[in-house]
């Protein structure tokens, strides 16, 4: 393989009261790759992202990111290493403006005193404008985030992650609640941002998955059921059974 592995998840597992939500998962994501994780409800997709970003502690296995073991590192340090996570419901700061939302996500002034001394320099503003334009919010910088449409909130959250220039970007259902045209715009956005980094997306909308995925991983009952190109995965009888069998 020529491209380096950014994320290497090996034998990862977590148990909630005896229930194995994620069970022996292996996952390797390369640089510049867009990986989509699909699977029926309760397959452990969101839990997998939670484990990688540190929201949930793993019971077993390892998560290596750029050759660093993440499992024992607190979540804010994982972010500083370059792991970004977008939540399923748009998670933005409603009472701040779009500009302030992006500014707060700027990766400087992250300590208490650093944030007290932080200044909105032209350099910061330029970066904010750049990212805002990328996520189609360039004209809405002064707008209160609570007045954005649902789709725009999703974009804003992606923009907040881009501010941090993560090496690994994990998006949980980024097009939920979006119109067709918004979905298309999001697909284009994702294709642009996966250059120079790796992106892991959870998604249900198969048309959308087809339009963005480089490779697809199918999870079922906490385990990897199949992995490969969309065409290969769709032809896999086990996948067909999981999706249509019940």
């Amino acid at each position: 393989m020529d491209k380096r592995i950014v994320l290497a998840v090996e034998d990862l597992g977590v148990t909630f009261d005896g229930f194995k939500a994620v069970d022996g998962v292996n996952l390797y994501v390369e640089q510049d790759e867009m990986r989509v994780v699909i699977g029926p409800n309760g397959a452990g997709k969101t839990t997998l992202l939670d484990l990688i970003c540190g929201r949930t502690r793993a019971s077993s296995g390892s998560i290596r990111f750029l050759d660093r073991e993440l499992t024992q590192i607190p979540e804010y340090r994982r972010v500083r290493l370059g792991v970004g996570r977008k939540f399923q419901n748009p998670s933005i700061y409603e009472s701040l403006t779009v500009l302030e939302n992006l500014e707060v996500s700027y990766p400087r002034g992250r300590t208490v005193f650093g944030s007290l001394a932080f200044k909105r320099t032209p350099e910061v503003l330029q970066r904010i404008e750049e990212v805002a334009a990328m996520v189609y919010l360039g004209d809405l910088l002064q707008v209160a985030a609570e007045t954005l449409s649902h789709g725009q909130m999703q974009w804003l959250e992606i923009g907040m992650l881009l501010m941090q220039e993560p090496q690994l970007l994990m998006l949980d259902e980024p097009v939920a609640g979006m119109s067709v045209s918004e979905r298309q715009a999001t697909a284009e956005l994702l294709q642009r941002i996966c250059k120079g980094r790796s992106v892991v997306v959870i998604e249900h909308d198969m048309d959308f998955v087809r339009s963005i995925a480089h490779r697809v991983t199918v999870l079922h009952q906490g385990k990897v059921l199949a992995e490969g190109s969309m065409a290969k995965v769709q032809a896999d009888p086990r996948v067909v059974e999981v999706y249509l069998g019940h």
Partner: peptide, 9 residues
Amino acid sequence: DRVRFSGYD
């Protein structure tokens, strides 16, 4: 959570 997962302690 969003603040925490933006790299802040």
